[in-house]
Design a protein around this nucleic acid. Structure first.
Length: 596
RNA sequence: GGGGGAGUAGUUCAGUUGGUCAGAACGUCUGCCUGUCACGCAGAAGGCCGCGAGUUCGAGCCUCGUCUCUCCCGCCA
């Protein structure tokens, strides 16, 4: 028999009860977390968002005791009782509320529950697809609740800090015009305008720049962004970024502000003192030392370029790479000289998986090299490699040779593998860095044209402005672009924007945009640039990814309340779903085929 | 678009060379138990072995296809 809540009012949260509440009468409401029926006494762990507390039902109190007889896991009850300190021998040090318990005087059964399709026990965690199907139950788990609460505190800290720095929080449209940015747009058909579409923002990029032109000076937004691309553990189709834009700033000022913001967030959320300023690496330096533009700086094992040492190598694989203007680089795995065939094969398979043709290795001994490709190296080369890499006996050296791009990719992957494998870093550490000086353009060999390496509205570095008129130097132009990286994860991306029309025009010319194309795609924006645009720049830290890092989650899905799977579906609501034919017709859309 | 992993009670998993191989733990239900805290004890119910073909005297196991989830590559400024 269920009871109504009536005039009962909750006085405390279960997880908050401590010895200082001793002898107080409390009213608690929550779920039956566990029930232990000893035949006489019945113990119930009552759970709410703050945790759980042990409640004692004793047979002498008939009304409440009868309720306790009937309750099962996940039933919802309200109780009145007296907080009692436990006897010393009954203290449970494994729980926050372990020194107290509630001696029940009255109870109401507010709702029952069918047995759950998944167990909430962290030790018997159900498969993720089932947990996502019953996400509202999965979210009852303390771990996920903690992640969401941590995320809340993180966003709170962001607002707190930015409000104090004269930022205004302004919303921008979700329904906007499709503009050619990097990713595929999510499109929304217009009912009122047949054949026309809105796009969901990949980021509020254009709007935030327009806000600077409007004179709002400093803007931020906790902005939802959408990208219709394939997913990963750290990529969802809709995600949140802390979108920031400021007028009259330099790159250095943005770094400074962000370092203070992040230090504030880390302190407030996990009480971690983040060292500032962050390490700064140019893109070139990051690639040379780590082979990747988002290096994990919690450990060393840097790449070593040994192309010049092997310029006359007889080894066909190395020769080929040199002939093709590529490079030979290596990485030293400390103390891995004992690796078995199976282990080295695994490394080779990682390399191949990353697109490499293979991975060469040697084991370092007291007198030189052994195994692997040793026989293809002469004594001078061996000595030179040992000298340059500082390799020690019983180390394993891994070589990749190919185009720079591929060598970097393979060795960066191998390096990350070893970081994890050899536990070269402390899981609880955070190594932040800035990556700067990205190339502004990439040359697309397939299409024979220049493409924006990041985005098109970036100001080149002052000293590279003249290259805009020198086609032979297009590849050398660096943008005022920067990424913030934490533990090998790209956390933010930003730039100083191009506020001058004359410069922007040159960039468009290089990218080969025609006047008509420009006008159609973002004429409104380009027009705005002509009316006194102040110098401005910004950055956009990923909110989900930061939450992931702060909570040590392995997947973005663990810090998003209702995430999508890798196939971009919501298993719980079964979205996306078919809609009624009428709805489709109203949108002036014809479907090619409707799958059942 | 491509490659790897997974799919067996409600849940997590085991299942040998194709032949007592339908199993355990947790959960559920029943009974006992007044200091448990992942309570304990005794018992019971619970299965389209993802789905579909094929090989075989015989398939959870082998082959092919297919679906779903997951990890990665491509893709994602």
């Amino acid at each position: 028999m269920l009871d109504l809540i009536g005039n009962w009012k909750r006085t405390h949260y279960c997880g908050d009860i401590r010895t200082n509440h001793e002898n107080m009468e409390v009213t608690l409401m929550g779920w039956i977390h566990r029930r232990r029926d000893l035949g006489g006494l019945i113990f119930v762990d009552l759970r709410d968002v703050k945790g759980f507390v042990q409640c004692v039902f004793s047979p002498e109190l008939n009304q409440a005791y009868d309720k306790a007889k009937d309750v099962r896991n996940e039933y919802v009850i309200a109780i009145k009782g007296i907080v009692k300190k436990r006897d010393d021998k009954n203290i449970n040090n494994n729980m926050k509320t372990g020194e107290v318990e509630i001696h029940i005087t009255e109870a109401k059964l507010l709702n029952d529950s069918e047995p759950l399709p998944i167990q909430l026990n962290e030790n018997v965690l159900a498969e993720e697809d089932l947990r996502l199907t019953y996400r509202y139950l999965d979210l009852r788990r303390e771990k996920l609740q903690k992640n969401l609460i941590l995320r809340h505190e993180m966003v709170y800290a962001m607002r707190e800090f930015l409000y104090s720095q004269n930022f205004y929080e302004i919303e921008t449209p979700i329904l906007m015009k499709s503009t050619p940015e990097g990713a595929r747009d999510y499109l929304v058909p217009s009912r009122i305008h047949p054949g026309k579409f809105f796009a969901l923002p990949q980021s509020p990029q254009i709007y935030k720049q327009l806000l600077m032109i409007s004179g709002m000076d400093r803007y931020f937004q906790i902005a939802r962004c959408f990208r219709d691309e394939d997913l990963r553990a750290d990529r969802q189709p809709e995600f949140t970024q802390l979108d920031i834009e400021m007028s009259y700033v330099t790159q250095e000022e943005i770094f400074n502000l962000m370092e203070n913001l992040f230090a504030h967030i880390f302190k407030k959320t996990i009480n971690y003192v983040l060292p500032t300023p962050f390490v700064r690496l140019t893109w070139q330096e990051a690639m040379d030392r780590f082979g990747i533009d988002k290096p994990d700086l919690r450990f060393g094992m840097e790449l070593v370029n040994i192309t010049d040492l092997l310029i006359n190598s007889e080894f066909q694989v190395f020769k080929t790479a040199i002939d093709l203007q590529g490079s030979i680089r290596c990485i030293v795995a400390p103390g891995c000289g004992h690796y078995s065939r199976k282990q080295t094969d695994e490394l080779i398979s990682i390399a191949k998986h990353l697109g490499g043709k293979g991975l060469a290795f040697v084991k370092v001994t007291d007198i030189g090299f052994d195994g692997g490709i040793t026989k293809f190296l002469n004594e001078n080369e061996i000595l030179a490699i040992i000298k340059k890499t500082q390799a020690k006996p019983n180390d394993l050296i891994l070589f990749a040779s190919d185009s720079d791009k591929l060598v970097w990719k393979v060795l960066a992957g191998i390096r990350n593998h070893f970081g994890k494998e050899l536990k070269l870093y402390n899981e609880n550490d955070y190594a932040m860095c800035w990556i700067t000086d990205f190339p502004l353009f990439d040359y697309n060999e397939d299409d024979n044209r220049w493409e924006p390496a990041h985005h098109m509205f970036t100001l080149p570095k002052d000293e590279h402005l003249e290259y805009l008129d020198q086609p032979e130097n297009y590849g050398k132009i660096h943008g005022q672009l920067y990424d913030m990286v934490c533990n090998g994860l790209e956390l933010s991306s930003g730039s100083i924007r191009c506020h001058r029309w004359d410069i922007q025009k040159k960039i468009f010319d290089i990218l080969g945009f025609s006047e008509e194309e420009l006008d159609e795609k973002f004429g409104f924006f380009l027009n705005a640039l002509k009316y006194g645009t102040p110098p401005h720049g910004g950055i956009a830290p990923g909110v989900d990814r930061l939450a992931m890092i702060l909570s040590h989650a392995e997947s973005l899905r663990d810090v998003i309340a209702f995430p999508k799977t890798l196939k971009a579906v919501d298993l719980m609501s079964q979205a996306p779903a078919h809609v009624q034919e009428k709805q489709v017709n109203e949108l002036h859309i014809t479907l090619n085929k409707i799958e059942k």
